[in-house]
């Protein structure tokens, strides 16, 4: 399955609609990536203002989700898409839900950043957060890229990556707990850090979901809740 396929309908206006829809999803994806980027920057650099800016922009992402959702409904009603086209629409409807949630998590991180910054702590403590942040940013980016290119193999790599993110999150959580036990005055702060880590970990889950929709789009197979070995086998990947 190739991306060009969506431009090969007999109806040219249908081609245009699908092309436009894919572009809108990527535009929304770009905006979400941007918010995530800023949120991580805000928390790592202790930039309270940036944190609040990101948090205040979330409604734009919500609006995009609603607009794309409506467009999907319109296409379902007027075109009655089948096969790959149907799978594209279904994947888009699901993917934008996950993107919107990523936006929510970025907003959460933005607020936490402004909160943490007011505690005036050295930013060095947030190095692990920074690493986890880069990791999930890359996952999200790769998931969107696989979505654009309809690349199920790359999507599978993102799915596999999620395990590592979960491990990193566990590590941060353990660190936070030991810090809080050592010095009870840090409890507020490390609660915030662990909330932020939790938000990043959730973003990894959403990137994984989006990747699963890519695999569904390409192979017509729902791999959710399957073991990875089973997925590789179904996809014919070693």
């Amino acid at each position: 399955m190739e991306a060009e396929q969506f431009g090969q309908h007999i109806s040219r206006s249908f081609n245009a609609e699908l092309e436009n829809l894919r572009n809108e999803v990527l535009r929304m994806g770009g905006m979400v990536e941007n918010h995530l980027d800023m949120a991580i920057e805000a928390i790592v650099a202790g930039d309270s203002e940036l944190g609040l800016t990101v948090a205040g922009q979330d409604h734009k992402i919500n609006q995009m989700e609603v607009a794309i959702d409506e467009e999907c409904n319109r296409i379902l009603a007027t075109r009655g898409p089948t096969a790959t086209d149907l799978r594209l629409i279904v994947a888009v409807i699901k993917a934008i839900t996950d993107l919107e949630r990523v936006g929510d998590e970025a907003q959460k991180i933005g607020y936490l950043a402004s909160h943490l910054a007011s505690n005036q702590e050295p930013s060095g403590h947030y190095r692990e957060l920074s690493e986890l942040g880069e990791h999930v940013k890359k996952m999200l980016h790769d998931a969107l890229d696989a979505f654009l290119r309809l690349d199920a193999k790359d999507a599978l790599l993102v799915v596999e990556e999620d395990k590592l993110v979960d491990d990193e999150y566990d590590m941060i959580l353990r660190q936070c707990i030991s810090m809080m036990m050592e010095d009870s005055r840090t409890i507020r702060r490390f609660m915030d850090v662990s909330w932020a880590a939790r938000a990043l970990e959730r973003i990894g889950d959403h990137a994984k979901n989006i990747s699963e929709y890519v695999i569904y789009m390409v192979h017509g197979k729902d791999i959710r809740h399957l073991e990875l070995d089973q997925v590789r086998q179904e996809m014919g990947v070693e």
């Binding site: 090969q8 309908h9 007999i10 096969a83």
Partner: peptide, 9 residues
């Protein structure tokens, strides 16, 4: 089949 049911060339 895919081309036909999706209305492609």
């Amino acid at each position: 089949t895919e081309d036909y049911v999706t209305g492609r060339f």
